[in-house]
Write a protein that binds this DNA or RNA. Sequence first.
DNA 1: CAGCATCCGACACGATACTG
DNA 2: CAGTATCGTGTCGGATGCTG
Lengths: 135, 135
Amino acid sequence: METQQVATAARLLAHDTFDKKCALRPIMDQTTSRWATLIISALVAGPHRFAQLHQRVGGISQKMLSQNLKALARAGLVDRQVAPTNPPQVTYSLTDLGTGLAGPLTELIQWFGRHGGELLAAQEHYDSQQGPPRG
Amino acid sequence: METQQVATAARLLAHDTFDKKCALRPIMDQTTSRWATLIISALVAGPHRFAQLHQRVGGISQKMLSQNLKALARAGLVDRQVAPTNPPQVTYSLTDLGTGLAGPLTELIQWFGRHGGELLAAQEHYDSQQGPPRG
DNA sequence: CAGCATCCGACACGATACTG
DNA sequence: CAGTATCGTGTCGGATGCTG
């Protein structure tokens, strides 16, 4: 189908997220990932040191923190400032781009906060009547 | 520290997303996961059949689609309607809760659409000057 | 058509140890 | 303090085949 191909091309040009080949998918995946969302929303409050972030984002390992921070820096969402002191001081902060993302992202997180009860209740209801998650 | 424990308790009651034990984390993880975001935003346009979704969300496998759909149904975000016909017709649609989530979520996706160019450019710039992604 | 069961590879993730 | 290197495990996720 010719129209099919045209549609695909149009979707690619427009960054159609539904398209399999959308170049944004990898970035979206990592940016909306478990840890990245928390890291970004933590940085909304202001610049943080590595250890501060590690403490703020409960349960994250240094490896994951470092890894996510690097990915976010690569995407141009966070800025990494190294102070030439001893011991070294590294400060992470949101770029303008990152701050822009933080808006929609925190709204999403806040939605979860507001509707957390409903979500939990729905799960309990679901589990109680037909399919317990395990066993 | 007593205050530490009190703070932790307060965070749990308030669904503090930063807390390691936050009960919402698993739900958030799967809801903001690669496929779930696309499925939800696909359903905003209206109810879909299984095959329709499979086609709409480019690159997803039946397994992942089925799995995500089940998880979303469990969280009370999508509704599953089975018509007793032959062959069976199963229709998925957003619940009110799901529609509520779709708002913040589509805003987030649209943000990526608008700033996709900047993100991609930032990555290229980053890679070109210091750290190519894979040696 | 809708969807589950199974196998299997790839990597995400965490714990630990080590470096500057 | 701020990471990197390495290892082991668990889960993610695709391909295939079968059911009703």
